[in-house]
Amino acid sequence: MTLTSDPPVGKTGERPETGAGPGADELTVVAVRRPWRWAAVAATAVVLVQFGHGLVTNPGWEWDVFAQYFASEAILRAVWVTLQLTFHGTVLGFALGVVLAFMRLSASPFLRAVAFGYVWAFRSIPLIVQLLFWFNLAYLYGELSIGIPFGPGFFSFDTVGLVGAMSAAVLGLALHQAAYAAEIVRGGVLSVDGGQLEAAAALGIPRLRRLRRIVLPQAMRSILPNAANEIVSLFKGTSIVSVMAIGELFYQVQVVYGRTGRVVPLLMVATVWYVLLTTALSVVQHYVERHYAKGSTR
């Protein structure tokens, strides 16, 4: 018996610890067991089921009242007003935001300072305070006119007639939105590699075309997720306008439960509408983002 020549084998018949050898193509992988994960899944599922059970069985939800009002004419009209506020706020807000963003990116210190001041002011003033200001515009300026600055006016408007409650609301939402949109657009433009502008300039491509065709499509990739966030929060933020007695969704719901006393089911009506429409927006966002992702994959 020689001690030195014995190969260091373990139990007889065991395969060596490599993938090679006979039967290599029959090797299968067995995943490690994770019992705690299963415990966590079970606990979470129980909570979810309890919540669902409560939604169905608790009479306090009053689903019959919910069903009665969910698609009622007054609510649908209110949803339409909410959508209008969101649409106009977004379009005007982002249009002004793009202008402000390029002012902040301009070479002129004056334009930069003005845009900076705008963003600073409108981000600092709470939306509700601003809305009430616009609502009371007629108190400050009884009459608006178009003409020579500091000189005679050609056309005059009665402020109360021009800036009704709805326009005051749209104006407030849009001006508020513009401050945030400006920063989002600016961030997007800054995220585009400087070499892109340089290459476009070297090719003699005109300035506006450079922005529209080269810079903005690339900036859109980082603008879109943030912009979608802003639109969603504006959409929900329209509920603030209810303080101005504008018949948008949240105001209308309050009117109904003020009359009927059915608070919870009517809050549910508003909630479900907000969730549904936000979901629709997310779907749109998905497709728009996919469009602007052209060329981003190998």
């Binding site: 892109q196 290459a199 300039a201 090719l203 005109p206």
Partner: peptide
């Protein structure tokens, strides 16, 4: 300036192709 530049071709170290265009 742009008009005169179209008479001069420039090739960059890092290509600077427009990634979103074919």
């Amino acid at each position: 300036i742009l008009r005169r530049r179209t008479r001069i071709g420039f090739v960059f170290q890092n290509f600077h192709l427009f990634p979103h265009l074919t």
